[in-house]
Nucleic acid binder design. Structure first.
Length: 647
RNA sequence: GCCGAAAUAGCUCAGCGGUAGAGCAACUGAUUCGUAAUCAGUAGGUCCCCGGUUCAAAUCCGGGUUUCGGCACCA
């Protein structure tokens, strides 16, 4: 096409023009219905405003409508702008900063002396609906850089001016106008504010630092959710309610698993039920580790600070450690400073260093359920997910450099096997690469990063790179699992360390009789046992698999006539190692059924006169509306098999 | 740590200057019942802590603690 313009649609059809058309013109050329429904145009995979004129003669294009996968981002970004306009109309003097689309919605950060409160949201929401109804066109304008800075500065929008100043010189400065209001924005946007529709809701207010830096001023952020239609919005709100029902703090209380209290903020009080679950989990993992060639150790809580100075932790993380000063001598005049361990690695190196190691001893896989304390910032604490005292299912593999890939691969396999036992089949891996401040040469980092990546790949996992996120002592693999409602949690980790063996002088005698440094792999599968239990509670919505359930079986009677038989059934089950309780209270069976189901007890065996006569039980499972009557012997055999931890 | 909100019986919550309340749970009694709440009664409180204002504070004000929602942090 010499002087023509040709654009290819997703179905392969090509549309031609004798001039450079706008996206809107292309949509109109396809059909009037589409022209009306169009929100934006995708040119070679890049989303643009419909009003923009095509700047290439040929391109693969696609019209984005409300139904498109990309529509939500546009709707949400538009909604953020509409919210900003609403806020500035209602609260003059409020400065705007940034307002992107995010997962499930959008937010906008405002600078204002008095932060917004929840009470402001209905007003803002009402104003937003008004602005959407005005349906003002969203018009893109290209501005001169200096003019733009002057404009925003004169208007008192110093944050916007600062954003422009920091944009690279090559960046085109664009502004979007919607009626009387305008905002600096890269776009793209739908043709008018009406496209936002009415399926949005403002959710919460929060503080957020300007540019995400805690040294900067705190802004006031408003979060909203926005969808294609009311039905989608309702579905999202229902999903949030579902997530709330799974909250481990709520279930932890209801199932009497644990509690937290003021005097020990960030430390868990495990109740008998929770501790039973905890021990079941620990026993299970201990078995897995044993099978995989680990030796288990136990190391101290408290260390003289010299050990942490030698390892480098005192200097790097001293601010987050709990420190203890102890006076010795007559008047306690000699003060000795200790630190409660925030991690187990220095202690494990001490065990490694005890006695000369030969290359024949490697790899040495050392595991510990190590209790650690970290003085987490108060705002970081969250139920048992983020605590100040936690137990790492920690492990360190001391190996020769040439064993790193094999050991990493082996660990990936073990981790995947463990996760699969809980139904976590979707595991994502991220590879945290060298940070700016780091130990070791570039050659060492090149090799370490490549080895971790290769090992993950060989284990069937494709890592996503996280540049700059690695620890100062080496790169790390982070394992993110996906729970039953699609949320991801980072639990496992595998970190390569070529600094600590050096600092703590770990060595082995090589085959050629020379002294060499082992490589250290730090690894954890659960991460923090506390947090993993929190994840499990939410993943299973409290309906734990039989082997993890604190109470596995309840034997409940219908009348007192069956009490003797019930005790007999319970005793038989207990003798087989099952955790069983009896409920012979003088209550109706309806009441008992409800109570045990609400308490999330997985198996209810109801016995009355009939069952006692026939040596049978009526089995009802949590989540089931019906029950099965079966012979006692069979029920016992079934339950014993089902209650075994994964093998 | 920062911004905002909250804290009342074991739990969920009402009360918002004038005698501390409800439902569920607990306890006692009656009921002996066939698969998600039987009935009646009894008992239960430093209204988070420390100050202040007031004739009078759960309530208003100040400081603190903890929790919640975010942000920042997460060896």
């Amino acid at each position: 096409m010499e002087n023509g313009f040709a654009y290819r649609l997703p179905d392969g059809k090509v549309l031609t023009f004798d001039h450079a058309p706008t996206g809107a013109e292309i949509a109109a050329a396809i059909g009037p219905g589409l022209a009306k429904a169009a929100l934006a145009i995708k040119v070679e995979g890049q989303i643009r405003d419909l009003a923009r004129t095509m700047d290439t003669r040929e391109a693969a294009i696609e019209i984005v409508t409300r139904k498109s996968a990309d529509a939500l981002d546009i709707i949400r970004h538009d909604a953020a702008h509409v919210m900003a306009e609403a806020v500035q109309e209602l609260f003059p003097g409020t400065q705007v900063t940034i307002g992107p689309a995010i997962e499930n919605g959008f937010y906008y950060d405002f600078a204002r002396d008095t932060p917004f409160t929840l009470d402001d949201l209905p007003k803002i929401e009402a104003k937003m609906h008004e602005i959407v109804k005005r349906n003002a066109p969203l018009e893109r304008e290209v501005w001169d850089r200096a003019d733009a800075i002057k404009y925003f500065r004169d208007k008192g929008e110093k944050y916007k001016a600062e954003i422009i100043e920091d944009l690279p010189g090559t960046e085109t400065i664009t502004v979007y106008r919607q009626g009387e209001w305008l905002d600096l924005c890269r776009g793209p946007h739908a043709p008018s504010t009406g496209s936002v529709g009415d399926a949005f809701k403002l959710m919460k207010v929060a503080g957020a630092y300007w540019r995400g830096d805690s040294k900067n001023q705190m802004l006031t952020r408003i979060y909203g959710t926005a969808w294609r239609d009311k039905k989608e919005l309702e579905a999202h709100l229902t999903m949030l309610e579902e997530a709330e029902k799974r909250d481990h703090r709520k279930l932890g209380r209801e199932m009497d698993l644990f509690h937290l209290q003021e005097e020990a903020a960030g430390s868990v009080f495990w109740h008998p039920n929770g501790w039973t679950m905890y021990r079941a989990l620990e026993t299970y993992l201990r078995k897995r580790l044993e099978t995989d060639g680990y030796v288990e150790v136990k190391t101290p809580q408290l260390f003289e600070k010299s050990l942490f100075e030698a390892s480098g932790h005192w200097q790097m993380y001293g601010h987050g450690m709990f420190k203890v000063e102890v006076g010795h001598g007559h008047d306690h005049e000699h003060v000795q400073t200790f630190g409660i361990k925030p991690m187990n690695c220095p202690a494990h190196v001490q065990i490694y260093n005890h006695g000369m190691k030969s290359y024949r001893d490697l790899p040495l896989r050392m595991a510990e359920f190590g209790s650690c304390h970290r003085n987490e910032p108060s705002g970081a604490l969250h139920g048992i997910m983020r605590v100040r005292q936690f137990t790492q299912d920690d492990g360190h593999i001391f190996c020769m450099p040439e064993q790193v890939v094999e050991e990493s691969k082996r660990f990936c396999a073990l981790l995947q096997r463990v996760y699969a036992d809980f139904g976590f089949s979707d595991v994502k891996v991220k590879l945290a690469l060298r940070p700016d401040v780091r130990a070791g040469t570039d050659e060492i980092w090149d090799r370490a990063e490549t080895e971790l990546r290769d090992a993950a790949r060989q284990a069937g996992l494709e890592p996503e790179d996280l540049p700059g996120e690695g620890a100062f002592y080496g790169p790390k693999l982070e394992y993110h699992l996906t729970d039953a409602i699609g949320r991801t949690w980072q639990c496992g980790t595998l970190q390569l360390d070529f600094v600590l063996p050096e600092r703590l002088d770990a060595e082995f005698v090589a085959a050629d009789n020379s002294r060499k440094r082992p490589v250290m792999l730090h690894r954890a599968i659960f991460g923090s046992v506390e947090r993993f239990i929190g994840v499990l509670i939410e993943h299973y919505a409290g309906r734990l698999p039989l082997w993890l359930s604190p109470t596995q079986v309840v034997v409940a009677t219908i009348t007192q006539d069956a009490d003797g038989y019930a005790e007999q059934v319970a005793a038989t089950l207990a003798a087989k190692g099952l955790r069983v309780i009896t409920d012979t209270r003088n209550e109706k069976i309806n009441y008992k059924v409800r109570e045990h189901m609400v308490a999330k007890r997985p198996i209810l065996l109801v016995v009355g006169k009939r069952e006692a006569q026939e040596r049978a039980v009526a089995m009802r499972r949590l989540g089931s509306e019906s029950q099965t009557v079966l012979p006692l012997d069979q029920a016992i055999a079934d339950l014993v098999a089902e209650a075994a931890p994964p093998q």
